[in-house]
Structure formats: structure tokens, C-alpha cells
Design a protein around this nucleic acid. Sequence first.
DNA 1: GCGAAATTTGCGCGCCACGCATTTCTGCGT
DNA 2: ACGCAGAAATGCGTGGCGCGCAAATTTCGC
Lengths: 212, 212
Amino acid sequence: MVTGVECTQQRIERPGLRERKKRETREAISVAALRLALERGLDNVRVDDIAEAAGVSPRTYNNYFSSREEAICALRLERAKEMGAALAGRPSDEPLDQAIINAMIAMHGGAQPEKETLRLILHSPALRAEFLKNMAEVEQPLINAIAQRIGADPDRDLFPRLLATIVFSAIRAATEQWLRPETTEPLGTLVGQALAYVAPAAAAYEREVPAR
Amino acid sequence: MVTGVECTQQRIERPGLRERKKRETREAISVAALRLALERGLDNVRVDDIAEAAGVSPRTYNNYFSSREEAICALRLERAKEMGAALAGRPSDEPLDQAIINAMIAMHGGAQPEKETLRLILHSPALRAEFLKNMAEVEQPLINAIAQRIGADPDRDLFPRLLATIVFSAIRAATEQWLRPETTEPLGTLVGQALAYVAPAAAAYEREVPAR
DNA sequence: GCGAAATTTGCGCGCCACGCATTTCTGCGT
DNA sequence: ACGCAGAAATGCGTGGCGCGCAAATTTCGC
């Protein structure tokens, strides 16, 4: 445990070495929680099990998460948080509807060995509730990105909020379709289909307010 | 407590007199829970308080609801359950988008002294999560109503599920807008505005599959 | 009225979130 | 190299909650 050799090298580390450690334990806990839930099912996972599997005390587990559901869904929440940035990262000359479609397809195009995870989450009432709660919590970045793109007020105008919730709904509907046993198409395709239906709504605002 | 006089009259009651009693206690509990939460805030309401206020034992309270959140949101859930029926009740010659708009406006047009209730629910994380969970739970009737109207398979086709979630999202966005302090327009108007944006998506399917 | 069924109630157990005080660890200045 | 603030991890105790189980009470059909 005593390695006083390379201490001096990381002094100027960006997030601070301490931050990294926190992130690591946080991730270790959520990974352990998810793995156990996948193996045994949510009901057969005690808090102590998660803590032990993550190599921390039960009390420490509770310093990071205040419920099993939160721990299990944490990884997915991290991904969801990026959605606003994904839209903000699209070129600004792209029409709103296309920007949304491209951003969201890009976020769901990668490798997806996570089908079992999503099945677990969306099929268990408690986890499903946590999932929905998380979705609603990360709406704000997407609202801001939409508002900024069309020059609307994210607080006062209805449209950005409306469109953001609709986009998340479309993604959820596509995901649930994807989880059906007989579905073979990749998730990205289904997300694209769902958003294609939504596109007219996205374009509606631009038609309504052509200038600015 | 002994009234053997009019017993014979209610023998053939539809739901059975027993059922009525259950509904009454259930409602008494949820009314009490909501009232206490409005008065004191969610954190200052113990389960025992709810039980006492409803005139039942704590154990009985738990026979009806398995969390404070569930009890508090129960009344609202009842209303949400009617949404599928509201759409199914629209004349069948009405276009899908108009039927949805009319049905949902009708459901949000009535008296609304419930602004404080919705504020409570949507501003408290735990109640908000319960609210979202309930919304997702009552999607199925609306999905079925949509599928039946356009002749789609509610299980295999993506569109009904997609549209149902979108409609609920629009209502939620409109509601949150309505709760903003400076908003003066009635909820029904805002729901109408939100659904007007959604209408093109609803019409998209009918354009896509003109026959049948 | 009366018996069967359903509902209510009391009791107890396991679990969980969290406040508080203590211990251990980390980063930084000397 | 050393030690000292500060932060994180831990242990312990408490209040509360969900629910299984069995006894008591109420309801319903006859």
C-alpha cells in the first residue's frame, strides 16, 4: 500500500487524483449492483451483498446511492445525461428535426450487449420507476439544447420542453419494441423509425416562427 | 351499528355492498394522505398519521397501499386510467389526431382546484417518480384505443405505443408549463397547444397506410 | 340467527436510509 | 521525508417501513 515513488507526477492532474478514486468506487458499486441484479433478480439482492461485491462497507454504499434502484440504474443514467450534449454537438446549420434524429441514432448505434440490462430494468416495476425518474431528470440539458438551437426561452416557452419529452418518449417506445423477443432489428434503427414520426412535430416550430 | 331494516333492499346491488366499502376506505386513505401531504409536506407525514386520519389501523393502510407515494397519487391515477376510454369514446369517423386532441382537452377542461396538488406531486422527487410510474402504467389502455382506431396490432406495431407515450408526454409538458407561477391560461388550453404540435405525428400513420 | 368467507387488526421480523462520531486515507506545504 | 488539515470510509444506533402470519371482527348469503 506504500508507494511513494510516482506521487509527484500526478500533482497537476485535471480532476485531481482524489476525484478519480471517487468515480472508481462509485462505478464499482453500480457495476456490482447491476451484475448481482442480473444474476439473481432484484428481490434477491441485499444492500450488504452489493457493498461486499464492490469491496466497500454498507455505509459507504449508502454514501453514494440511497437505494438499490439508484445504484443499478446509475450507469444508464450517465449515458442519458449525454443526450443534451449530443444534440448540441450537431452542426448548427442542420435542421432541428434532422439534428435530433442524427444525434439520437448516434447515441444508440454502438455496441449493445446491454439488452439483458434494459430488459431487467424495464420489466421490474421498481427499476422501471427509477428509469423513468432518471429520464425526466436529464430532460433539462436536452431542453436547453433545443431552445438554444431554435432561439427560444427554455423556461418560458412550451415548445422546447414539449419536444424534449417527446424525444425521450420516442426513445423509450423504440426501446420497448426492441426488447420484444421477436424483434431482430438493431435499436438504432427503431429509434430512427420512432423519431421519423416525431420529426414533423420538430419541424412545426420552425415553420411557425420562420425568422429567428 | 345494528340496522336490520333495509338489508334486504340492496341484495342485488351490482358491485356488491362489500365492494363499495372497500372503495370507500381506499378513497378515505388516499384523501387523508393527500390532505396531510398538502398541509405538512411529504417529509412530515408518517404512515401512522395517514392511517389515523383515515380511521384505519396502520396495517390496514398497508393492505391498500404499499407506500405513501402510492396513496397520495392514487386519486390522480384513477383519473389517468380513464384516458384510454376517453379516446375510445370519440366518434369513430373523427380523424385520429382530432380525436386525441378532443378527448384529452375534454379530460382537462373541467374544474381544477387541484393546482396545489399537482404542484406538490411534480415538485417532490418521490411523488414525481410515482407520478411518472403511474403514467407509464396506464399507457396500455391508450395504446389499445389507438391501435383499435387505426387497425394496428397493439403488441407488434411500434406506432400505437409510440403515439400513446407521446400524448402522455405532451400532457405532462403542458402541465408543467401550467404550474409555472406566471402562467394564467387554463390547463385545457395548454394541453390543446401541446397536442397541436403532436397532431402531425398522429396523422403521419394514416398518410402512410391510407387503406385499412 | 348462523356459518363461511372476507376484511381488519395486532404483532413481529428483516430490511433499509441516514445522522453522528470515529477512524483511515489523501493531498499538500514545509 | 514528515506531518497536518481535509476528505472519505467505516461502525453504530435509530426511526421508519413493508409485509407475512395468525387472531379477531365484520360481512354476506341462506
